[in-house]
Design a protein around this nucleic acid. Structure first.
Lengths: 217, 217
DNA sequence: ATATTTTTTTAGATTTGTCTAAAAAAATAT
DNA sequence: ATATTTTTTTAGACAAATCTAAAAAAATAT
């Protein structure tokens, strides 16, 4: 009986160490995985014994080079499956995460190669997240959160940094979808919400929404 | 941590009770699953507690109606994924079994619906095995083994009843592929091998090969 | 009908991943 | 600098799925 536990831990640790480049705490992993801190400690010891994480007691963990490689490979598979679900099977972008969480664990390198070819070597998944190549390398791109734009700057939406279904559905309602062009107007002092122009209308979006939308200029 | 163990047992019991409609023995399951008889006994008790199999000590098992339904659903998923692998990703028919064994456990009814639609509602998988519909019903067809044909009878190959890669590869070498028309000539007394006409050539195939080829007249 | 062989089950142990409760260490506050 | 709070680890237990070895039942052979 094989299990996906190790792969899920590696993926979670990867994501938690990405934004800030420092060890992730036991509790943060436990929260993110719906498990107890004690279980995380147990599992971390196993991962450490397998040389997939660097671990010193009470100091949190980082991925080793090998752990990182494995994590990126899972993310590659997850994102390619998401593209498949949206492009080939016509799912919506807010419907694919849970299914891809299962598909990402299927073991077959040739399957992923063929899938990638079938999808025409996509660079990003349906949320604009970069898909690493076979060697784990990400294309170098210049994405930043919408809230960092300056007055009257034009930009194109290329991704999101939050994947909850409720967030994605809201974006669709506002036409804030990938490929959409927008113009930054200004920040409203009172609540830090943001005025933008989109499809010739001016709309207001909260800071929470704005900072989770990725754009390129 | 979820596991596919129960699904794999159900599938195996389904296949082992199919050909002969009587209880399957503990040892037969153990052989087919690469495990020990003791483990099978343990697992059977669990399946019985869940009302998925009918079990009386020393008497072997059969599937309950519910167990049967679950088994057929797994087989449906397995076969649809095989069609996907061959038709969409261009795998060969002898390369898909192991991958489909993983994909069949992905849980999402809507995924299977969309996959089925994408594949244009196929009736059989790449080996000619029938794909049950959503309600677990198989289309009623008239397939039988090639060795049961009579002299000079013409027939079309529609499937195989053995799925090993070595068998399938051998069939390809002999052009014995699905859709191929053949004419039965005669049985050779000495070794029960069979003479057939195929693509204007007469060839000889062993009884072992012949009985694992399914034809329709 | 009894002995032998085969099949199945039980008993007891192991591994994986999890848990709760308590102890220990680190971080924070006074 | 000490007390308090938070975080992490340890200890001990549990469920799932497996194993080997031994016992029990069923099937087969003489």
């Amino acid at each position: 009986m094989q299990s996906f536990t190790i792969e899920n831990y590696l993926k979670k640790i990867y994501h938690l160490t990405q934004r800030e480049n420092k060890p992730v705490q036991t509790n943060a992993i436990a929260d993110g995985m719906n498990t107890s801190a004690a279980s995380v400690t147990d599992m971390i010891k196993k991962l450490s014994a397998k040389k997939l994480v660097n671990y010193t007691k009470y100091q949190g963990v980082t991925l080793t080079e090998e752990g990182n490689k494995k994590a990126i490979n899972i993310i590659r598979k997850h994102r390619l499956w998401e593209v498949f679900l949206v492009n080939t099977l016509h799912f919506k972008w807010d419907e694919v995460h849970e299914i891809a969480d299962q598909l990402e664990h299927v073991k077959s390198d040739v399957l992923i190669d063929r899938l990638e070819k079938h999808l025409n070597y996509p660079i990003t998944d349906p949320h604009g997240d970069l898909i690493p190549d076979k060697n784990g390398l990400f294309k170098d791109v210049n994405f930043k959160p919408l809230n960092l734009l300056h007055q009257n700057q034009e930009a194109t939406i290329v991704g999101v940094s939050e994947h909850s279904s409720s967030f994605l559905k809201r974006l669709e309602e506002l036409n804030l979808i990938i490929g959409q062009k927008i113009t930054f107007i200004n920040v409203v002092d009172f609540d830090n919400s943001i005025e933008i122009k989109i499809l010739d209308n001016q709309i207001n979006i909260s800071k929470e929404i704005a900072k989770n939308i990725l754009i390129t200029i």
